[in-house]
Amino acid sequence: MSLYDIILKRIREIQEKAEEEEPITNVTASAMLTAELTLIASLLIAVVMIRLIHPILMIIMIIAIFIIAIMAMPIMPKLRKEQNDSFNNMIFYVVIALGIIIALFYWGNLNV
């Protein structure tokens, strides 16, 4: 079984578990797969920008993220579940984001 089949199989498994009432078609599964690959590809390309800080750190980060991404595959169903329309979920991420932004701007600029 090739890597592609393994990913596709696991995406279908997770989808079956998550949305039992929703029919799974080839379109939804392939959409999920595209999203998954796009996500990982853009993440890996974005990590290359760490080279501006330090080249060796970049190499380590790329390898680490690649391994984590393969291990955590499929990410997209989980990510999609996190970005649902529940208000409690939204406000949780909003407050987390507020915390991160303030911390980064405040401490990042004073202490770096």
Partner: peptide, 11 residues
């Protein structure tokens, strides 16, 4: 209740 009214409506 926020979790009942404003919960996730799914697809």
């Amino acid at each position: 209740s926020a979790s009942k009214i404003l919960g996730d409506k799914g697809e």
